[in-house]
Simulated assay, not measured.
Amino acid sequence: MFIRETITKNKMTNKSYKKHVLVESYRTENGPRQRVVMQLGTLTLPKSEWKKLAAALEGRLAGQVTLFEEEKEIAEAAESAMANYSFNQKKVDTKKQRRSKAVYASIDLNSVSTGESRSLGPELVGHAAWQQLELDQLLDDCGFSPTEQALAEAVVVGRLVAPSSDLASWRWLRERTALVEMLSVDLSHIGKDAIYEIADLLLSNKTDIERGLRIREANLFSRPHQVFLYDLTNTYFEGSAKKNELAHRGKSKEKRTDCPLSHLLW
């Protein structure tokens, strides 16, 4: 046996990579042939030591330890190569065993159908965000029952994943999403009126929920407070804006002297 070096080149990065294999020569009726016995990765041993390593590995495969392994570098390289070989061999053996025990059955592809297919991926993201923000605890502080907390999560995640009307959200919850299996309360048989009611309940607690969310977000994503300035000098109000306390006449860059501006501009 001997060790062969091959060089491959990545066309995208133009980098060259070396790998080494243990090769065995054997005779056939059609003449001598060669076959790869073991993948060695990239060797750090100098080329002058490859012959010793090949002899050591040949002995290991035959269940023997050669005198070459008295050299520390040869012994370590042989040990590493055999460990990788044993790992790969176990994978091959396991695959063969699985194939030998496999049970096959014929099916008619024209008769195959699916039922009750439900979406999962986006719901997992929404559910994880809900838990990270500790929204159940926040809603509990607002007086929401466990069922109301689960309904609130269903409505909020539903608006993120499949934004639509309350009625469409109810149908989505019943027919299209696996979110119901993640919630602490079974909502599989919930009526559509409950969706309308929880939306009203969330709205009535809007101030407390927003305040709690602000605190949680600040703890999760700590960053300095910032003030954003927006230039409104090109902005004007359509109509007379008689009941708008911020609307006054002033200089307009748009030359709309007929329209009131915000008195904050001047």
Rank of each mutant, 00 (worst) to 15 (best):
A154L: 14
K192A: 08
H189C: 07
Y26D: 04
S80V: 13
A56Y: 04
A81Q: 02
Q97L: 14
L183M: 13
S204M: 01
K15I: 01
L201N: 04
I209P: 00
T207W: 03
I195E: 08
K243C: 04
I107H: 07
A78P: 04
A178R: 12
S145P: 01
V103C: 08
R118V: 15
P32W: 11
I3F: 04
T177V: 13
Q34I: 12
A102N: 08
T235E: 00
F237L: 03
T42Q: 14
G191D: 14
G250W: 12
A247C: 02
R174V: 15
R27Y: 14
S80T: 14
R211Q: 14
K47Y: 05
A152Q: 13
L183F: 15
D186K: 08
H263Q: 03
C142S: 05
G63K: 01
Q64F: 09
S164R: 05
A81T: 06
E134P: 02
L160V: 11
N110L: 14
M182T: 11
Q226T: 07
K72F: 14
L202M: 08
L133G: 12
Y196M: 07
N234D: 10
Y230T: 09
A199G: 01
E245K: 13
F68W: 06
N14W: 03
A102Y: 10
S48H: 08
P46E: 11
E5Y: 00
V37I: 13
V185P: 02
S86W: 01
K253I: 06
K91A: 05
R159L: 09
I215F: 12
L232Y: 05
H20G: 02
L151Y: 11
A199F: 06
P46T: 10
A162I: 03
E5S: 02
I190L: 14
T114E: 06
D141K: 14
A56M: 10
S100C: 00
L203V: 09
E217G: 12
T235P: 00
L135N: 07
R211L: 12
K206P: 00
L213E: 12
G212D: 10
V161Q: 04
A218F: 01
A241D: 02
P32D: 11
S25F: 05
E73C: 03
R176G: 10
W170L: 10
K11D: 03
P260I: 02
L45R: 08
Y17T: 09
G143K: 07
K242V: 09
D93T: 11
K19R: 11
S100I: 03
L160H: 03
R4Y: 04
L61F: 06
K18S: 09
F2P: 00
S119D: 12
Y236G: 04
A75T: 05
L139T: 13
A218I: 00
F87C: 01
P46D: 09
L40F: 10
G212M: 07
R256S: 07
A62M: 06
A194S: 15
A81S: 11
G212I: 01
S111A: 15
V23F: 03
D140C: 09
P224E: 10
A62V: 01
W130F: 12
V103R: 13
S80E: 07
G212S: 11
S204P: 00
L151A: 07
D108Y: 11
E24Y: 11
R159P: 00
T177Y: 13
K255V: 09
